[in-house]
Amino acid sequence: MPKYRCPMCRKICSEHLDLARHYLGQTDKKHKEWLKTQGLSYAELIKAQVTEFGNKGYEALAEVLKKEAVVVDEG
């Protein structure tokens, strides 16, 4: 089963949605800034997540991470 690494740090998750959860939990500038290069806004993602039922913020980021996260082989 493939695993995915966060583009900004060494965090590895087995699902893109979990990686998105990790990503938005980070408060440092580095993580926040990279989102801008992907046309996303940290604040917008959080807002989507907290103002509407569902996982809209994480899902939007997971879509981007599907393209951008590095695939790490198991073992």
Binding site: G25, I46, Y58
Partner: peptide, 21 residues
Amino acid sequence: IKDDAPMVHEDFPSNINATRH
């Protein structure tokens, strides 16, 4: 949390102080 809101602290976009999931 709006985009054009005044910033209470610099480095905290949209005034997000903490989040929890």
